[in-house]
């Protein structure tokens, strides 16, 4: 029996050097990596890499960099487990194993000439950032561009300066909200779905890209339904355990799909059957 001979082994990482570390929050940091191959590292917004820290282990992290700057690989990481905490201890000049890019992408081509609505919750702004940067760079391809982002509190903003910069543009709507705040905060206190309820858009010509905790996306979908945005125009980014990134390890199964290759970005109507099944 013959089997195809692989051209490369998807389980073996390439190595990239950390060229800059940005502290976003006490437990969230952004790495800028010099692309592992001289030719640059091209990816589609929404995709992820498996990042490996020497001896500590490997984790799937979505790419948060600018798709138009393939010379630099950017990842925003929250230190929540053993591996990501080890990663937080790394500095400029340290090396990181990279496998990828893997997974599906935000449907940016499909969204051309449509209202493009980004709905981000917490760290969910990171996987959306490449798509937002693309939309801003190719602004004329879209009608309205709307960014709605929710964070826990005013102390938990991620990409704050960038959000402020985007907001200052005349051709983009950026609304930011927090779940809780004291009275020193002058901005909006509400959950993200409340922003969806009020934003100006053309529901039948909107493509909505959602990323954040699953519960937040459930509430956001409900609000989009109320606005009349059809399910096939809603896209969500799912998260599951992953060990390989290429469909071998079985961990990321979500119904009949593998989040690592069929996702992480799914068209909502295609997973609606799974979305409300508990513990699936």
């Amino acid at each position: 029996m013959t089997t195809p001979i692989p051209l490369f082994d998807p389980m073996v990482p390439a190595f990239a050097r950390i060229s800059r570390v940005d502290r976003e929050l006490p437990d969230v940091f952004t790495w800028h990596l010099a692309a592992p191959s001289g030719a640059g590292f091209s990816f589609a917004p929404g995709q992820f890499n498996m990042l490996y820290a020497f001896g500590a282990g490997e984790v799937p992290i979505s790419i948060s960099g600018d798709p138009n700057r393939p010379e630099e690989l950017v990842h925003t990481i929250r230190a929540v487990g053993a591996v990501t905490r080890a990663m937080q201890g790394l500095r400029k000049g340290d090396t990181i194993g990279v496998r990828g890019p893997f997974g599906s992408a935000w449907p940016l081509a499909e969204a051309r000439d449509q209202d493009l609505l980004f709905v981000a919750g917490g760290l969910g702004v990171a996987p959306l950032r490449p798509a937002i940067l693309h939309a801003l760079a190719a602004r004329s391809l879209y009608r309205r561009v709307i960014v709605l982002a929710g964070f826990r509190s005013p102390a938990d903003f991620i990409f704050r300066k960038e959000l402020e910069r985007w907001r200052s543009r005349f051709d983009v709507t950026v609304e930011v909200t927090v779940d809780r705040a004291d009275t020193s905060f002058r901005g909006t206190v509400a959950v993200v779905p409340a922003l969806i309820a009020e934003v100006e858009l053309d529901p039948a010509a909107t493509v909505a890209l959602l990323c954040g905790p699953e519960v937040m996306m459930r509430f956001a979908v409900r609000e989009l339904e109320r606005r009349g945005v059809p399910h096939e125009r809603i896209h969500v980014s799912m998260e599951r355990s992953m060990k390989c990134g290429v469909g071998f390890c079985g961990h990321c199964q979500y119904g009949p799909t593998f989040v690592c290759k069929d996702g992480p970005v799914y068209r909502f109507d295609r997973i609606e059957r799974l979305f409300y099944v508990r513990e699936i």
């Binding site: 001896g55 490997e58 599951r240 060990k243």
Partner: peptide
């Protein structure tokens, strides 16, 4: 299903990555 196991020697100079059988019946799996 499989999982990966990462280890280093005591000095942290070498690291090894293994792949081992895993099972969807464990809590860790998901």
């Amino acid at each position: 299903c499989s999982t990966t196991v990462d280890t280093t020697d005591l000095a942290g100079a070498t690291a090894t990555r293994e792949r081992r059988w895993d099972s969807c019946f464990t809590l860790d799996h998901s």
